[in-house]
Each structure stands twice: as C-alpha cells, then as structure tokens.
Simulated assay, not measured.
Amino acid sequence: MSRDFDDFSVILLRPRRVQILRLLISQGTMKISDIRKLLNAPASSLYYDIEILKANGLIIKDGPYVKITSKGRALIEKADGILAQGPRKPGAKSEELTNILLMRPLTINMYRLGPNALLIYSTIIIVLGLVMAFMQGYELLLLIFVESNYLVPVGITTVSILAYLGIALFIYRYLLSSEIIDLKLLSGILASLIPMSLYPTIMTLITPWVAPLPLSIIDALLKALLPLASLIVLATVLSMTSGKPVEYSLLFETIFLLIPSVIIYIALFK
C-alpha cells in the first residue's frame, strides 16, 4: 500500500510525467527529443522527469530512447481514475523558476558528461580548491571553510569530505530507501562538492583587490550561498537517482550537514 502511494505521488506531483507515460503507451519506444518536442517542455525538466520515472521502474532508458515498463502501464491504468477530471497544468514560469532554484539544468548538464568524465572533472576541481585552501590557510568544517588556527585540528578537511560523502550515501541508502549505489551516484555526489570547493579560490582572487569591509560581506555571502548550492545540487542528484521528491533529500541534508557545520563553527569561533 505504501509503495503504491509513493508511486502515485511520483507521477501525480508532476502531470507531465503522466503525459510521458501515456505517450509511451500509445507510441511505444520513443526518442527523448521527440517527447520534448511533442510536450513542448524545457529539456532540463523533461530529463529530470525521465530520470525520476526510470528510478521508480516505470520506464526503461536505452541511450536516447525510452519505453514504458509493465509496472508503468499498470500504474497509469490505476491513475486514470484519479486523473479523470484532469490535473491543472502548472504555469511555465513558475516551473522554470523552480528548475533554476533547484539547479536542475546544471545537474542535467553535469550528467550529460557521463559518470566517468564527471568523476574526473569533479575530482580535479575539488583538489585544486583544496590545494588553494591549504596555501591560504583554510580548513573545511563539513560545509564551511574557516581560517586555520590552533582550534582547528590538522586534517579536519579530509575528515569533513569523508563525512560529507558518508552522510550523503547514508541519506540515499537508509533515509530514501534506495539500494543501487553506482558510479553515476558517486560522481554526482562528488560533483555537488564543487560549489563550496570554489570558496578558497574566489577569496584568494578577490582579497588583494577588495577593501576589508566589503570583503567581509562578500566572505559571509559566499559562506552562506556556496554551501547552499552544494546542498541543492546534492538534493537534486539524490532525487534523480532515488526517485524521491527533492524536498526529502534537501530536508535530510540540511539536518545532517548544514546544522552540524553551523554548530561546530559557532562553538569553535564564537
């Protein structure tokens, strides 16, 4: 019963997912680009919906082609009674704004690189950020870079990165009840570290050119916005791979990553 409810929520939360399933029932195997043209949908949103449907076993994706599964057929038949009156189509502008806020286009384009390339590029960018942090005397406390001093244990950055990866996998495996852990998931989690790993580089580049007062304001904004960007990218990655709404992932990440970071920062430096 609960699983059926989860499946219904997956398609009913986004009426376009119902349209995709119905198209596949009537047309059979289709190219994703053809579906996008027929539905006149933004590419990033459509790919996101397809990944959600795939993660829930409702469709099969083979390169640029998708087809509906028997589970998808059965589910859409059950949903027909509920959807008989027709769902309201959400406004295109509000949907576009949601996509931007959740950084879905960025995440979709990341995955188009392929898991191997994404893993390599992410590793390079993160390592460069950590090298810059080491050179400028920064340590990473879970999600927040701080200036190193005697209060920060040596190597806390490594521990923070391992904790970040471990907590992300814990959320995916036990809180989102997903079992398949593959290279696509791991590369996506690693890529979500990119925004906050940019902090040392940005600060290094602007410090010589910005006065102390505006620099402190920029520093505070970066410490707030870059970790938030990492949280949102991670939430979208976990949502796409688990099939759960992004709100679940973001809620768990905020509790398990952001709040401990703030507490540790306040305890050590305030």
Rank of each mutant, 00 (worst) to 15 (best):
S2V: 10
R3F: 15
S9Y: 13
S9K: 12
I11W: 04
L23I: 08
I25Y: 10
S26A: 14
Q27G: 03
Q27K: 15
M30A: 05
R36T: 13
K37T: 10
A41Q: 10
P42T: 11
A43N: 10
S45Y: 15
E51Q: 10
L53P: 00
K54S: 13
K54F: 14
A55S: 15
N56R: 11
Y65C: 01
I68T: 03
T69R: 01
A84E: 10
Q85P: 03
A92T: 10
K93M: 09
N99R: 09
M110H: 12
Y111V: 04
Y111Q: 03
L113N: 04
G114E: 10
P115R: 03
A117C: 06
A117H: 11
L119T: 11
I120H: 01
I125Q: 01
G129A: 08
M132I: 09
F134Y: 14
Q136C: 05
G137F: 11
E139P: 02
E139Q: 06
L143W: 08
S148M: 07
L151T: 13
V152E: 01
G155R: 05
V159T: 07
I161P: 00
A163H: 09
A163I: 08
R173Q: 14
L176E: 03
L176P: 01
L176M: 09
E179R: 13
L185A: 01
L186W: 12
S192A: 14
S192L: 05
M196N: 03
L198G: 00
Y199F: 15
T201E: 02
T204Q: 03
T207L: 06
A220D: 08
K223E: 05
L225M: 09
P227H: 05
P227W: 11
V233H: 02
P245E: 07
L251Q: 07
T254W: 14
I255Y: 04
L258N: 04
L258F: 15
L258R: 07
L258H: 11
V262E: 01
I264E: 00
A267Y: 15
